[in-house]
Structure formats: C-alpha cells, structure tokens
Amino acid sequence: MLIFTFLKHVGIYCTLMYRVFSQPDQWRMFFRQLPKEMEKLVVNSLGIVVVISIFIGAIMTIQTKLNTEDPLLPVYATGLVTRDTLLLEFSSTIMCLILAGKVGSNIASEIGTMRITEQIDALEIMGVNSANYLILPKIAAFVLLIPCLVFFSMATGLLGGYFACVFTDILTTHDYMIGIQYLFIPYYIFYSVVKTFFFAFIIASVSSYYGYYAYGGALDVGKASTNAVVNSSVIVLIFNVLITNLMLT
C-alpha cells in the first residue's frame, strides 16, 4: 500500500513538472516574476545564511581545536578541518536543509493559500497554465542563485572561524589562516555547487508540489507546508548520498 502511495505521488509530481516546464504563456510575465522570486527566495535568505554560517564556522573551529589537542597533529589541522567541512558538507547540504525550512515552507504556504482561496482556479479558468506561471519562476530563481548563497556561506563560515580565533585565543589567526589554505582542492567547491543545483531544484519543486495540491483550509496549508519541508529534506539527504558517491568516489 505504501509503495502505491509513493508511486502515486511520483506520478502526480512528474505530471506537474511536465506542466511546469512547458513554454510560458507570456515570457514577459515570466521575466517579470523572476526577479521578484529571486528577491523573495534568495536575497531575503541571505541574512539567515550569513548569521548561521558565521556561528557554525566559529563553533566548528572551537570544537575541532578542543577535540584535536594532540602535539602530534600539525597546527594547521583545525583550519583545514573547518574549511573542508564547510566546503564539502555545511555550505551545501546543511545550508540547503536549513533553506528547505525557510524557502520550502514559504513556497508551499504561498501556493497552498492560492489554491484554497481559488486563485489557482481563477488562473486556470482564464486559460493560464497555473503550474508554469506560479512554479517555473520559483524553481528558476532558486536554482540560478543558489550558488551565491553557497559562496556566501563558505566565505562567512570561514570568517566565523577566524573570529573564533580572534576572540577566544584557542588558536592563533596565523595558524588558522595556514590551515584554511593548506592542501586546498578547488574541486570541492565545484562539487558543492553542483550538489546545490540539485538540492535547490528538489526544494523548490517538491515544496511547490505540496502547495499546489493542498486542499481544505488553513490547517491543511500548514500540513502541506510541513510535508514540503520534511519530504524535501529527506530527498535532499538521499540525493546527497547519491551525488557524493558519484562525484567523490
């Protein structure tokens, strides 16, 4: 029974995506929506990305240093571990899980509210492809600008580690700077950015799916929003394993 429910969801999701990726009724309307969505989904997420990255970068530096108090370990170990953790996992996967909460719930509740207040029906009656009009700009905006958030997260995370060195004296800034530059592999950034393209698509499309097929009242929009966040997070984690296996092994 569970497998049938799963297949049913996959089928409806694919049908929705087919409608989303058809040609817009008016490209002019699409390009008008795109910057609005970019601002709403990405620019407005910049604050939370920066704050979380700075603090996590600082905490990571402190904890790495505390757990590697060994004279045999080189001084640059703390910086190196902080950098690689940020580049490989935090700024892509963990940041996308956080964004699944913020952006995913935003998308699902917005589209869900439009559904229950008959605004989507109104679009359909007018002959507008509502899925394409509402969802495509969101997916495009989020996928196109997600690398910016990743770069901001990486930079501010490393900055957070630097601040931890300045304000706590657990490590000299000199050692930290050596650590974050030591054995730098640029491919890690490429890997991280590629992952986030997939994650951004998953978050935007899965959340749109739950919002688009919401029905009932305010309570059901809340449920759709919760389902959007939970399911997109789980799918992001599954794809994280798959992509990591493909790109790093």
């Binding site: 008959e118 109104a122 009656i125 007018m126 002959g127």
Partner: peptide
Amino acid sequence: RKEVGMLFQGSALFD
C-alpha cells in the same frame, strides 16, 4: 477559456 469569465465566491483576487 479566453472567452470565459468567472466570479468566485471569495473573489479570488491575486493578493
């Protein structure tokens, strides 16, 4: 549908 207009119960205006 371009020939159809509809007035919904809750107006359904775009917020």
